[in-house]
């Protein structure tokens, strides 16, 4: 059954079995590989995307539930790495292997939208369900706080 949704600002229709997780639709059907497979059970956060502006774990989100919704993936965050969170990530030299970072960034963007001026403890709480085996948490913490400053300077959340 075809499912139509908005993906990174464009109307998209796919025809796959309805229980197929959004993650695999993005990766295999649409070849948008920036969203990563890490665990398949919503335990690691590597697959995090935004659905109607909220962070969601695409590995357990059936495509049938995405119908008529707005999906943003890492590829849709900005055209040119100009999102303050991306800038802050580069500034902090946060990624190492980089595999989990799409999910980290998408989690951070959704969090900062709701909490534009977080405390370090709020950052920790918001980011703690995203796993990074390279151990980049300290730099991510710094990057999220810095992104918040950049966003304030640019006149609020995007």
């Amino acid at each position: 059954m075809p499912v139509t949704f908005e993906l990174n600002g464009r109307s998209t229709t796919v025809d796959v079995s309805p229980e197929t997780p959004l993650l695999w639709v993005l990766r295999d059907t649409l070849n948008l590989t920036g969203t990563k497979y890490g665990c398949g059970i919503a335990a690691c956060g590597a697959c995090t995307v935004h659905i109607d502006g909220e962070a969601a774990r695409s590995c357990v989100y059936p495509i049938s539930s995405v119908s008529a919704k707005r999906v943003t993936t890492i590829e849709g965050l900005s055209m040119d790495r100009s999102h303050p969170v991306q800038e802050a990530w580069i500034e902090a030299q946060a990624p190492q292997c980089g595999y989990c970072q799409s999910g980290q960034i998408m989690t951070a963007v959704a969090f900062l939208k709701k909490t534009p001026s977080p405390t370090p403890q709020q950052v920790d709480a918001a980011m703690s369900d995203n796993i990074c085996r390279c151990g980049t948490a300290q730099r991510i913490r710094k990057a999220v706080l810095h992104a918040s400053e950049l966003m304030q300077a640019q006149g609020g959340a995007r």
Partner: peptide, 27 residues
């Protein structure tokens, strides 16, 4: 000194082994 590989790891464009996509590829 800023690492060369980092920008591509902030926008989903870095391609890992699992991201290889080839014409006609099966899984």
């Amino acid at each position: 000194i800023q690492r060369k590989d980092i920008p591509s790891k902030t926008d989903g464009s870095a391609r890992f082994g699992i991201d290889v996509r080839l014409p006609g590829m099966v899984y």
